[in-house]
Design a protein around this nucleic acid. Structure first.
Lengths: 206, 206
DNA sequence: GCGCAGTAATGAACATTGTTCAATATTAAA
DNA sequence: TTTAATATTGAACAATGTTCATTACTGCGC
């Protein structure tokens, strides 16, 4: 077997492992991921897992990376659904992004939750994970630049973070069915209200 | 020993146990709470823990209850620091409540995090815990009633939830030092901007 | 083809934890 | 003081991530 064939095999094993982990998270939530289950899922002995990933935390991080890539694409699509040629349209675009975030979370509930429920032994996230997280804010740059052309880069970044965080909070609490389940339509209304209200002050009076 | 003396002893043990758990959470975070450590902290055999609480989850819930009581008091104090006799003052009061939430979270970081990082085996929260969580929203009722006297109870409750959730999200992301640490002053500014912007639309134009 | 060096896979063993429960100790009442 | 009820103990168990000595395999030089 050539060297690259070995590497390919490893890659295939890794992908099978991530697939299996995703499937189990979707089916039962991240808390019930078991090393032994995964090993049996992909037809490998228990110890073999540690030839594919260094430990369970790394596997969770790889699953998270995939989820964030899909989330990123969803936010991109949300942004692309609106042409932001005026300040008001920029706000509508921000609403679309926020709605895309909510929809993604609702439709990928367990994978999305896994992003936050990971309790890693080592609290320092690898750089690629940090970058993926920070990258999620970038979709708001363009509309915010329309809305606040006078603000510098740092101010816009901070605004983007705060707006994203606010929407995130509403989504988190809204999908926390342990308290009160709010219907999706009401959630979307609330999100739209929040984003519009937050941005209203940026648009110069007509 | 009389019956009430026995009950008192149990109560004292329970309080010592909760104290010990709090201290360990403050010192090392909720993830490193160990049954054996706690048993030794309060001078009881390992198995003795299960005469005091039914399991670790229940202990965590009791710690959470205490934390929520203190948070509730902090929000109350924040609200009381402003007299809301006008709509504008009502907004200022909401800002004070939001700032109180941020300050509490920052000053009780690990206990506050423990509220969300608890991963209970049984996902159904006991009723007293649900009530404590829902009760946190009540501080916003009075100022929101000032701002939206026309809205009915349900609408106000939903607004309160959304506003609280938005602030919560900003605080969560802001205190997540795994990404970028935002200075406290900037955080407070962002929170104030968010709350004021969200409420601006409610106050009738002068 | 054949044997060999190096690599990969295996699964038994280990470490850590929460939880249980039979055995022991304690205590209040008679 | 005896006794029955209760409380406490800690050894044992179960679940789970991780390690590592052993085994199996695989490509390469002869």
């Amino acid at each position: 077997m050539t060297l690259s064939a070995i590497a390919k095999r490893r890659q295939a094993q890794l992908e099978a492992l991530i697939d299996a982990a995703e499937a189990r998270i979707i089916a039962e939530g991240v808390a019930s991921l078991k090393a032994r289950d995964l090993a049996s899922d992909i037809g490998v002995a228990l110890g073999g897992l540690y030839n594919i990933v260094e430990d369970m935390d790394m596997l969770l991080l790889k699953v998270a990376q995939r989820t964030m890539e899909r989330l990123d694409a969803a936010l991109e699509a949300g942004a692309a659904s609106v042409v932001a040629d005026t300040p008001r349209a920029a706000i509508t675009q921000l609403v679309a992004i926020a709605h895309a975030y909510y929809d993604f979370s609702r439709n990928n509930l367990r994978l999305w939750r896994a992003l936050f429920e990971m309790r890693l032994k080592n609290p320092d996230l690898p750089e690629w994970n940090r970058q993926a997280q920070l990258g999620l804010f970038r979709h708001m740059n363009a509309p915010l630049a329309h809305l606040r052309p006078e603000a510098d880069e740092a101010a816009r970044t901070l605004t983007a973070r705060t707006l994203f965080a606010a929407v995130h909070g509403v989504v988190v609490i809204g999908l926390e069915e342990r308290l009160i389940a709010v219907p999706a339509a009401a959630m979307k209304q609330q999100i739209e209200w929040l984003v519009r209200a937050a941005c209203e002050g940026f648009v110069s009076p007509a």
